[in-house]
Computed example of a mutant assay.
Amino acid sequence: MNHCDAFDYWGKGTKVTVGAKPPSYIYPLHQCGSGDSRGDISLGCIASGFSPLDALSFKWNDGNGNALRDLHQYSPVMVSGSTMMVSHITVKAADWNSKKSYRCAAHHQTLGPGKSETLQKPDQPCRLYLDVTLKPPRVREMFIDNRAVLECIISGEDKAVREAEVTWMLDSVQVTDKITQIGTEKADQLFRKSSILTTNNWEGGKTVKCSVQQKGGPTITKTLSFGQKGTTKPTVSIQTPSPEDLDRKSEFFLLCLVTGFYPEEIYIMWQVNGGKYEEGITGELWKTGDQYSVTSLFKVSKVDWDNGNMYNCSARHASEKEAQIPSHPVSKLTGNSMECP
């Protein structure tokens, strides 16, 4: 006996796609903080594991069942072999803060309504995460003032940034002086503040740590090493272009070659006629065995070169605690410099 009535399970005239699957899960998202400048809060839903790829759409309702029309729905994508789709809406922060609820539902074009999730402001505030960046010393200050200026930048939500506390450590010893605090300011959609440490004691294996304690969250620590015990002094030399390039071009680059140093932290500057230090274009480090090398370029006009200007390249490295390591100066008369170990 044949049972054709089994096909009526989907209803007469319903098209069934072979391999159609509803989402395996739907995950609610809500914005931390008090909202944007317009007083709005973003809510979202992520659905995953459905098929086919173009089968899903989202529907949003408020707590009274009223449909919300101002929703955003993004194109589905494949992530690690699974389908994924995102939708979000914007609601008034005042409504969200008053504990109004919202429902996000995934609707399959073949299988109909599927999983849904309700979003409502939690009783416990969500953790506001921070981003911390420790900027290395500025080259010019290292050369001219023999001091390292390090900036620890904290960015994130306003409240989290304001409540974050910064601690500086130099070789595992807490530093409490020569620290400048820059107050919270808005940068794009986030807030930021800085703590700046100035130290004259940076050579010879120093390690600096900036630790940021989040209120109710983990401590974020960033580390920068100025050098380690056991250093190798670099050799510094300047290479000039070929005579043909010097004759044909109105401007060209001198090349400073700094080789054979350890550790890798190094700072390179240029001088013209013994004047103020100027920055060149420093390239990427490369390593040969246990030692590093790097190049720096400095643009020179043919007029200045023909006038006999003298050019010098100097390196500052942990192997020398007090002085720069200079090259022999070059000019039109001297040609390429010899290596200065």
Rank of each mutant, 00 (worst) to 15 (best):
T221I: 04
T198C: 13
I266C: 11
K186Y: 00
K193Q: 10
W168K: 01
S155N: 05
A160N: 06
Q228H: 13
N200D: 14
P137M: 09
V149C: 13
Y262Q: 06
C210P: 08
I238M: 07
V139M: 05
T176F: 05
T223F: 10
Y129M: 09
Q239D: 10
G230D: 05
V208W: 05
S250F: 05
I266E: 13
E185V: 10
L254C: 10
V161I: 11
I153A: 09
T167V: 05
M169I: 00
Y262N: 07
T259C: 13
T231W: 10
Y129E: 12
K229P: 00
K215P: 00
W202S: 13
R147E: 13
I154Q: 01
P243V: 05
R127N: 11
F261V: 07
E163R: 06
S155H: 02
R162M: 02
S172P: 00
D158C: 01
E185P: 00
Q239I: 11
T198H: 08
S172D: 10
V208D: 04
T176E: 10
C126L: 14
A148M: 13
E157I: 08
E141G: 02
Y262S: 13
I220V: 15
E244C: 04
C152V: 02
P243C: 09
C256A: 15
D247R: 14
D123M: 15
I179S: 01
K178C: 09
T199P: 04
R162V: 04
R140S: 05
T259A: 15
G217L: 02
L170M: 12
R192F: 02
V175P: 01
L134G: 08
L170R: 07
E141D: 14
E251M: 13
T184F: 06
G205V: 01
D245N: 15
E157S: 05
L134E: 10
K178G: 00
W202D: 13
L130Q: 04
I182Y: 07
Q239L: 12
Y129T: 07
T219E: 11
T259H: 15
Q239W: 03
L128K: 11
R192T: 02
T198Q: 15
A148Q: 10
K135M: 05
P218E: 14
P125R: 03
F253L: 02
C126M: 12
G230Q: 03
R147V: 05
E157C: 02
I220R: 03
A160I: 07
D247P: 00
V258Q: 02
K193I: 03
R192A: 05
T180E: 15
R192M: 02
D123T: 15
P125S: 08
N146P: 01
T184P: 09
D245G: 04
Q174Y: 08
G204K: 15
S250Q: 15
I153K: 12
F191R: 04
V161L: 07
K249P: 00
Y262A: 10
G216Q: 06
Q213E: 11
F261L: 14
Y129H: 12
T133E: 10
T133V: 15
F143W: 13
V173H: 06
G183S: 12
Q189F: 11
T240S: 03
A160V: 06
Q174N: 04
Q174W: 01
D188R: 02
S242K: 10
D188T: 06
V212Y: 01
